[in-house]
């Protein structure tokens, strides 16, 4: 049991399985093309809101799994069931779209 726990902690701390992309200042700069008021803090808030509002009911979907149009449809569909305020909805959508675009650029 102790060995399993150690394995779990080491794997976690080494970043193995780190699933949810963290935005950087570069992402914020790129985001300002579409969202002039975008900031790194805003993207981080969107990530936090995505975790807080969505992970309670299902596993989080990687931003790269959908493109911008896909995420708009998804967030629009889940808005009421996740009890999102308009600010939370906007922050989550912005985070997902920007990080999806980052994945698109890399591929």
């Amino acid at each position: 049991m102790r060995a399993l726990l150690q394995l779990l902690v080491v794997a976690a701390l080494s970043g193995c399985g780190a699933g949810l992309a963290l935005p950087t200042e570069q992402d914020a700069e790129r985001a300002r093309v579409h969202y002039p008021d975008a900031s790194l803090d805003g993207l981080l808030e969107g990530r936090s809101a995505y975790v807080a509002k969505c992970s309670g009911c299902h596993r989080l979907i990687a931003p790269a799994a959908l493109d911008a149009a896909g995420w708009r449809g998804m967030v629009d569909d889940m808005r009421d069931r996740s009890h999102l305020t308009p600010d939370q909805e906007a922050a989550i959508l912005r985070y997902l779209v920007v990080m999806s675009e980052r994945a698109q650029i890399r591929t």
Partner: peptide, 21 residues
């Protein structure tokens, strides 16, 4: 990168569950 519509059609019904254990 998946296209939006097919991915959305696959993911949307599947994530619509409550606090799954």
């Amino acid at each position: 990168m998946k296209t939006s519509l097919p991915a959305l059609l696959v993911l949307l019904p599947a994530i619509a569950s409550a606090n799954q254990r």
